[in-house]
């Protein structure tokens, strides 16, 4: 779904005033592009699935284990994110944590209390590739409201902010923006990319693709969709069960208790990351596991570019 055009135009002050009513956060991407007076979080993932959280507390007393669950606080939060980051929540995280029974109660509580707003993008950064994976910089899909800064104010779709209807000059501005984005949009990956990649599992190109990658977890930790986590006990006779992010880039990610490691080689881990996002997830859930925000591309220490990797594997499979 693209812009309906039936939103309203509010003044920037009215929009900010409306935002300041609750506990409002912006993502780093939004914070970088628009100077807004709100604290920032790295991605919506950091709110919904904190990097570490205690699930329950335990202690040994009176010759028995006492366990106290630690449900998250149900404080409503308003988060203003880029459309790709909204897509990461609705398409990937929701599908993983709420899509199948049993749902994750910790995630569910946080998600219920999250008002997620999309702030449209007016240009593509060098690292952006949302249009390659089915997104759009002006998409309001899945968001509770949509906002877009215009020269005369803020275009707003959703409930809560009142304003006047679009003037004809603003309609033209919007149309010009859509046309401009259309021109500069990176073209989508081929339709059958998930199937091609699935077939390319045994391709001998992977060694070459993975070379250069340091196997650090920067990309996965900064990714708005990477949801893998680990559970680790903290403390012995008293302590907590702590859920932390884990990364498929780490050698211990798949280490078995038997000490066998099915992905002991760095290449296998890089392959897993690409295939999970661009093959397994889409084949099972119908959408890419990557939303094209480009954070992994921008912040990779060695400029290992996932876009090129996917292109190379696709061309190898073709």
């Amino acid at each position: 779904m693209r812009l309906s055009g039936n939103g309203v135009v509010a003044t920037r002050e009215a929009f900010l005033e409306w935002l300041s009513r609750g506990r409002t956060f912006v993502t780093e991407t939004v914070a970088r592009r628009f100077r807004l007076p709100f604290p920032s979080v790295p991605t919506p993932k950091a709110v919904l699935l904190p990097q570490h959280e205690a699930l329950y507390r335990f202690f040994w007393a009176r010759r028995t284990w006492n366990v106290h669950p630690l449900p998250p606080e149900g404080t409503p939060i308003l988060l203003l994110a880029a459309p790709c980051e909204v897509k990461a929540v609705t398409d990937v995280l929701d599908a993983v944590f709420l899509g199948n029974a049993p749902q994750d109660p910790y995630y569910a509580t946080r998600r219920k209390n999250l008002i997620l707003g999309a702030l449209g993008c007016t240009f593509f950064e060098a690292t952006c590739f949302c249009t390659r994976v089915g997104g759009h910089p002006l998409s309001r899909e899945g968001a509770d409201f949509f906002a877009l800064p215009l020269s005369s104010g803020v275009y707003f779709e959703g409930e809560g902010v009142s304003g006047r209807p679009l003037a004809s000059s603003e309609k033209e501005e919007l149309e010009a923006l859509v046309a401009d984005l259309e021109k500069t949009a990176p073209p989508p990956f081929p339709e059958k990319t998930p199937e091609y990649l699935y077939e390319a599992f045994g391709c001998d190109i992977w060694e070459d693709i993975a070379w250069g990658c340091l196997n650090c977890g920067a990309c996965t930790f900064l990714c708005p969709t990477c949801f893998c986590f680990d559970l680790a006990l903290e403390g012995r006779l008293r302590g907590a069960m702590i859920r932390t992010w884990d990364s498929c880039m780490f050698p211990k990610f798949t280490l078995h208790a038997s000490s066998h490691n099915p992905r002991s080689h760095p290449m296998q881990r890089v392959r897993q990351r690409i295939l999970h996002k661009f093959s397994y997830h889409p084949l099972r859930k119908g959408v890419f596991g990557c939303v094209g925000c480009g954070r992994c591309v921008a912040l990779c220490p060695v400029n290992w570019d996932i876009r090129e990797a996917v292109e190379r594997v696709v061309s190898c499979a073709l």
Binding site: L214, C216, G217, A218, T220, F221, L222, F250
Partner: peptide, 10 residues
Amino acid sequence: CIRCYACRNA
């Protein structure tokens, strides 16, 4: 620090 270990791996 988010402990991505980029420093160590680089």
